[in-house]
Design a protein around this nucleic acid. Structure first.
Lengths: 192, 192
DNA sequence: GTTCCACCATACGCATGAGTATGTAAGCCC
DNA sequence: GGGCTTACATACTCATGCGTATGGTGGAAC
């Protein structure tokens, strides 16, 4: 009946808790990840949780590592096969714009950078992504120094875009305006 | 003796509390703004606070409105007198880069956009700033639609820059590299 | 020099959320 | 079909942080 209350009345595994945690984080941020609240969502009580995990932080760590290895790694993997670097960059921009919901977790983590578990993870992820962008610009025959700068700029624009778009409902653009905006970003940040 | 414990043993005003609140927010974020913690910083107890303010939210609101009217308004006011729009844009980018600490509060508020008091304020501020940028691009004889897009892009880059630079210690650039980066941003985002 | 009140201290109540202690029911296992 | 393990419930303790109730004090006013 209700898909969220009792999706299978089987018993839970640690993975179920991790996936539930990621859902919660995506919806309401890292702070909203509370043990009892998540237990209610999963249709059980705290007693279950403390069997699977040592404490709240252990769950957070496990959930974020799962996210880093699965979701996060996928993004780059799907774009990597594109040969032409300019085309690859265009694809990145368009994906970022189109698949905004899938970046919900990343946006939530951006707001929790002061958390000791989140910070090292985000440092890794961000460095990796900037590195990826830098190489794309290099392959588009941009001088090394300029490529590094442009990658930083593009990534900063991505991060800011997420903030303004998800948290703030900022732009409030129509479909056409939005496409035009993304096109403008590509025109501005991708060398000709 | 200790400038933080007893800066003047006079009694406090609502303004003192608001300024203290802004300091705390800049240092540790909106969540760190706790009544008793702030009272300790000011060398008094809660009893004082609840004489000046109805509750915690009232303080937050007052502090943020003070910030919006003073600090925030100053930024635009100082740049507005510059005649040449291209020069004005360059000055904006350089100020943002140089005066990073003064944007600490803005960065902290970005991480608290889910808070009902913060959201409307940040919506106002962001819209105002994007508007300001848009007009600068228009005066630099950029077509209206393109100007709006470029303003959004520049502002997103600013927001992302703050996140990556303050929270994450991201770039970790030397002085020279940093200047070169800012120069690259100006070259890329300001029309010739 | 007493009065008054703005400002503050002290001591509560109360809700929330983490973590613990302990009991219990439903499989396998042979 | 007793026994062990896995998974969960129940019922607490404890810390934190907001808000309240009430009493105290120093300095301006007269």
């Amino acid at each position: 009946m209700n898909a969220r209350q009792k999706t299978e009345r089987t018993r839970l595994s640690a993975e179920d808790w991790e996936l539930g945690a990621l859902e919660l984080i995506a919806e309401s941020g890292v702070n909203a990840l509370a043990v009892e609240a998540l237990a209610r969502r999963l249709g059980v009580t705290k007693g279950s949780f403390y069997w699977h995990f040592r404490n709240r932080e252990a769950l957070l760590l496990a959930a974020l590592e799962r996210w880093e290895q699965h979701d996060e790694a996928d993004v780059l993997a799907q774009i990597e096969p594109i040969d032409d670097p300019r085309e690859r960059l265009r694809e990145i921009f368009h994906r970022v714009a189109r698949e905004v919901p899938s970046h919900r977790i990343y946006a939530a983590l951006l707001k929790a950078l002061d958390h000791p578990v989140v910070l090292p993870l985000m440092t890794r992820v961000s460095q990796r992504r900037i590195q990826f962008l830098t190489e794309a610009y290099l392959q588009a025959s941009m001088p090394p120094e300029e490529a590094a700068h442009r990658a930083r700029l593009a990534y900063a624009a991505f991060v800011g875009f997420l903030q303004l778009n998800l948290a703030l409902g900022m732009p409030r653009l129509s479909h056409e305006e939005f496409d035009a905006y993304v096109e403008h970003v590509a025109e501005t940040l991708i060398p000709h």
